[in-house]
């Protein structure tokens, strides 16, 4: 549908020559923007709705209730995926979970998946790579959070929390509703829609820039250009990609469309996936925030193990696809 629309606009309305590089790049740009823009609006609305109906306070209650019987890590990780992520909320969330009596390992499961699988990344993934890769991405993010939280929970890591955090966690506070009083449906929908459009507007410049670069790659970079240094069979391509990803946290929404264009030119999907997981999941502002509650040692353990798992996911996908 978007392909035809983009064809009509670029080759029909503007009358550009379909064989020319500039026209092909422009067609790619228009096509991607239409598709990603539409998906962004839809996915942010859906996730906003899920979140309005299932606020994080209720999530904490469900996990802390003990009724999940061993599925706490999976539940925390899945809830992390559907909860919109903001690095400024990670600390209150972290301490709030501990205060609610949720073990550190389960809290980690939430904390790992929450930035990794978020509504903006999912929408752009869906637009750029299609539903198969998007599901693979979301599923690996959730599995990664579940397993890693369970593993980290086996070690006695509480002692590496800052002492004021341990004290705060012991003082359990009365659960707050977070202003979640009953809201009429029309008001709720209006609120969800306003937030969703706000998110779309905020990431729009990054998406536009990313798709523009992607369009350039699409038109001008020859296929197989990266084979010699990032291609299949290069043993260190995946860790190098993850390392490269760490400083790029702020432009995650622009990085995905660029990576899509690079994959089309021959970069293996697993390497690309690991790179994007690194961009989205290993963020410096998040690390700086967490530094206030964790001792350096725990922070290092946390980030190193997330990075290691992302690298494993990358190798895994390179093997499969």
């Amino acid at each position: 549908m978007w392909e035809t629309l983009a064809d009509r606009l670029v080759y029909g309305l503007l009358g550009l020559d379909a064989a020319a590089r500039t026209a092909q790049s422009l067609q790619f740009f228009v096509h991607e923007i239409l598709k990603i823009g539409f998906l962004l609006v839809v996915v942010t609305h859906l996730m906003g709705l899920v979140n309005a109906l299932l606020p994080v306070e209720r999530v904490r209650e469900a996990i802390a209730s003990g009724r999940l019987r061993g599925a706490e890590h999976l539940a925390a990780s899945t809830f992390g995926a559907v909860t919109p992520f903001c690095s400024c909320s990670s600390i209150p969330l972290f301490i709030g979970f501990l205060q609610g009596g949720i073990p550190l390992g389960v809290t980690f499961s939430f904390l790992i998946t929450s930035p990794l699988v978020n509504e903006v990344a999912l929408a752009i993934f869906l637009g750029s790579f299609g539903w198969k890769v998007t599901i693979a991405y979301a599923a690996s993010g959730i599995v990664l959070g579940t397993l890693l939280g369970a593993i980290l929970g086996r070690f006695d890591l509480e002692r590496y929390l800052e002492s004021w955090v341990r004290e705060a966690a012991r003082r359990s506070t009365a659960p707050t509703s977070g202003g979640g009083a009953a809201v009429a449906w029309p008001d709720l929908l209006r609120r969800v829609s306003r937030d969703a459009l706000g998110i779309t507007r905020r990431v729009a410049p990054y998406v536009l820039a990313g798709v523009a670069v992607g369009a350039g790659v699409h038109g001008w970079v020859p296929a197989g250009a990266f084979d010699s240094w990032l291609g299949e069979g290069h043993p260190l391509a995946v860790p190098a990609a993850v390392l490269l990803a760490v400083p790029m946290y702020s432009g995650a929404s622009g990085v995905i469309p660029i990576t899509e264009a690079l994959v089309a030119k021959g970069i293996p999907l697993g390497t690309a996936l690991a790179f994007m997981m690194g961009v989205v999941g290993l963020s410096l502002p998040e690390a700086l925030m967490l530094k206030k509650v964790m001792r350096t040692r725990l922070l290092a353990i946390f980030f190193a193990s997330v990075a290691a798992c992302i690298i494993l996911v990358g190798y895994g996908f390179d093997l499969i696809f």
Binding site: S89, I91, P92, T173
Partner: peptide
Amino acid sequence: IVSYGVLGLP
């Protein structure tokens, strides 16, 4: 901030 028991900011 955490003494208020909020889970999200602001």
